[in-house]
């Protein structure tokens, strides 16, 4: 097995008072499908943001794909997000002004891909998430579940090693939630993409390889 995410003594405090993460030590293998559980305010989003290079820890180390992340180097953080990480958020994930196809292509715009590659990749991914016929629809013309499918396709378009999903099913009904979950699982199996999915729902945790639970910023073992 190959370690893809590793954290050592990760701490995050806000204003020296609020402790969002306290000595988090994690080892995640390539291709794992993990649910990140925990009460509201336990630090799940904070952890995800740090792993994705959006936020910096107060102390501690993060290794992604064997490389130590230098949180003071803004350029390398952007490269990390462009090349290794795909983000999915809870809702209103998509750019309202762009169609499904354009939303999926969007990350490649910042990553120097030519137009044909972008178009082909986005079209393939829309097929994969079952929205081949909705390519030219705008987010407002799609249901919440369809929008999240587009968001999954967009997270995959840069061919990332890791997908960080912050409550991707939080706003969906249970049937749609299951569908989205199955879709992510399918992608995980087919592409060996590592998934770290924040969820409030324990039962979803049963459908993953492993669950990690946070309590007041610490990993519950």
């Amino acid at each position: 097995m190959e370690t893809i995410i590793e954290t050592r003594h990760l701490n995050k405090a806000y204003n020296d008072r609020v402790i969002a993460l306290a000595d988090v030590n994690l080892t995640i293998e390539k291709g794992e499908f993990i649910a990140l559980l925990g009460r509201s305010g336990s630090g799940k989003s904070t952890l995800l943001n740090i792993l994705g290079g959006l936020d910096a820890p107060t102390s501690g180390e993060v290794r992604i794909d064997g490389k130590n992340i230098d949180f003071s180097d803004r350029k390398s953080l952007i490269t990390l997000r462009r090349e290794s990480i795909g983000f999915i958020f809870q809702s209103f994930n998509l750019i309202p002004a762009l169609t499904a196809q354009e939303n999926v292509e969007y990350p490649l715009l910042f990553n120097y891909h030519d137009r044909t590659t972008r178009r082909e990749r986005a079209a393939d991914l829309l097929l994969l998430v079952g929205l081949g016929d909705r390519a030219h629809h705008y987010p407002r013309e799609m249901s919440g579940g369809e929008q999240q499918r587009v968001a999954i396709a967009r997270a995959l378009v840069g061919d990332p090693l890791i997908i960080l999903a912050d409550e991707p099913t939080g706003n969906l009904d249970s049937k749609t939630r299951d569908e989205i979950f199955s879709l992510m699982r399918q992608v995980n199996r087919e592409r060996d993409t590592t998934f770290l999915i924040v969820t409030h729902e324990r039962e979803l945790g049963k459908r993953t390889d492993r669950t990690i639970e946070l309590l007041d910023g610490s990993v519950v073992t």
């Binding site: 959006l54 462009r82 958020f89 750019i95 990553n111």
Partner: peptide
């Protein structure tokens, strides 16, 4: 604001 945050999360630099 949120849209710009998401744009940055998916790989846009401040210059972008």
């Amino acid at each position: 604001t949120r849209e710009i945050g998401i744009t940055m999360a998916i790989g846009a630099s401040p210059a972008d």
